[in-house]
Amino acid sequence: MHQRKNRLISCKLPLLTFVILICIWEFIDYVFQIREVILPNPHEILASVLANWGILIKHTSITMLESVFGFLIGSSIGVLTAILFVYSAKSKQALYPYAIALKATPLYALAPLLIVWFGSGLLAKIIMSALVAFFPVLVSAVKGFTSIEQESFDLLRSFSASKWQIFVKLRFPNSLPHLFPALKISTTLAVVGATIAEFTGASMGIGHLIVNASYYLDTSLMFAGIVMISLAGILFFYSIEFIERKVVFWQRTD
């Protein structure tokens, strides 16, 4: 009961912040009479969202499709690579430093190259998404699989556990509290990856819509696109958090 009340309060405050910010925005726009091409009013953006609802949904769905596939592929490969690193010290030594280095590289710079290689269809965007979603998951999965007390290994070994049993019953569950925060970060990166790839060359998707709207100086539509993809990204993030709460029930990270 108490917890539910707390959650309600934690919902109320951000909502209040939102309302205040919108009011300030409307107020500034009204006082300084800023033109719609430069900065549209919140209510003009809302009108644009409603007027273009069908198109916005279509393009947002396409971007989210790319992001979700990219996320799934990238994070799966991340986890599998982490497993390889855990069981083969040589491959870890050979590859891990580069994985860390690449994590810090702005992979988005590869977007034009991917368009050249894979065309302007969905594939290039999915690959871009997967690339950026991959590294945080890899690094956290390696940490999760290995940051285990020696005593836990000793315990399982004293009961003659096989390597497979040690993985399934110890390493894997132990990795989950490390893995989920990375997965959440990767959801947002995947959406950014897909959108940026769409900026570079696409005939569909929210990135394409935003770039196109900019050619027509339809700033309200640009904002409408930003609003839609933000909401979709937030939904994506919180759906992973929802799964996290169900799966990693023994550890409350908040």
Binding site: S152, F159, P173, Q251
Partner: peptide, 24 residues
Amino acid sequence: IVFQNPVLLPWRDVKDNVRLPNEL
């Protein structure tokens, strides 16, 4: 073996922790 730390698996309840050697 019993260690100084209990070394229980936090994602398993008491019953499942006690049952672990059976599973292995």
